[in-house]
Design a protein around this nucleic acid. Structure first.
Lengths: 181, 181
DNA sequence: TTCGAATGTTTTTCTTGTGAAACACTTGCT
DNA sequence: AGCAAGTGTTTCACAAGAAAAACATTCGAA
């Protein structure tokens, strides 16, 4: 007698979950779960692992994402631009800016032409902080991925790119499940 | 002159971000970002898309995960078992149980032997709710993945499985970045 | 020019999750 | 038996984000 609901070295947690669903709803097509469940689980574990270096720097991940957006675009961004760039709500951005400003990592400058808009820039300290954290994150990521050989990595990257383009609606969005009008 | 920071039909958002980092830190190995950035972004978009059917059923995703854990294991679970199964904190589980119980989706029964522990079970309504939502989710997932041909899907699933096993520490955990003592 | 709609940002209110402490009970040692 | 340490669950105080409303300002049409 086998014990199908225990995890072994050859299993990941998703494999176990899929087997459990198969036992309850035999015949269901669980193929999608094996991909999407793994994407979700990988994302959760990766984020958890990468939060550690951020916490050491006194940052949350959304805060780091905000600073990173400023760093990588190279120019200043407005709050709404940052919201777009970091996929977060305007209210959340406002809160983060307030805290990051108090810590001297960013600055706000009012636009001269249009006094509704603010321009957010990194301070030197903010830029240095991002530049000191980024290599740590990339190093960890490289290490995690070193389990896959380079060809597999390219494969994975390409497949995920296809999936992502579809999800981002580059061509044809998911039918029948939109938020509605 | 090219405009490297705009997204085109052949790009996904991650490709744009990677190019921005390359412009700021030329020569950096951004390979890892192309995989891990895409995993994170796919996860975010998938969760957002799958939240819609749940909201229609009056559930949040963590609530559905909890009910799903009860459904797929087939047996009752204790609160701490549910916390383990859904990767969430005990306190969060307690709160969710309270609400789900008020809505008649789960029941709590005290253990006779050990009066500290509670056993959580799905009610008929809870079981029916899960069973009505699950096919919708799987249907959406199947549809999203239909952009990849079956061989690529198996590829993707296998690579993600390798990565996930590594992240879950099946063999060799990421060195040098643990939470520390 | 002046009013109304649109836009950019912030504030408010509410919900949810978390970590620490509290509570309830069991177990093993003496 | 009695008590200390351990375990399972819940409560509490607080931090963070979302949606909607409030503000401030610009822009276009009459």
């Amino acid at each position: 007698m086998t014990t199908p609901n225990r995890r072994t070295a050859a299993d990941d947690t998703v494999a176990v979950v899929v087997r459990q669903w198969q036992a309850v709803h035999p015949g269901t097509d669980t193929g999608p779960m094996e991909i999407i469940g793994r994407i979700n689980r990988c994302a959760a574990l990766l984020q958890q692992a990468e939060d550690a270096p951020l916490r050491r720097a006194g940052l949350t991940r959304p805060e780091f994402d905000l600073l990173g957006a400023l760093r990588r675009t190279g120019r200043d961004l407005t709050p709404s631009g940052l919201a777009r760039e970091t996929f977060s709500s305007g209210a959340a951005v406002t809160k983060r800016l307030k805290q990051l400003q108090e810590r001297g990592l960013i600055e706000r400058h009012g636009d001269v032409r249009d006094r509704r808009v603010a321009h957010v820039t990194l301070t030197d300290a903010g830029r240095d902080l991002v530049d000191s954290i980024l290599p740590v994150q990339l190093g960890y990521e490289k290490d995690v991925l070193s389990g896959l050989d380079p060809a597999d990595q390219r494969e994975l990257s390409a497949r995920l790119g296809e999936l992502l383009r579809r999800l981002e609606g580059g061509t044809g969005r998911a039918p029948g499940l939109g938020p509605g009008p």
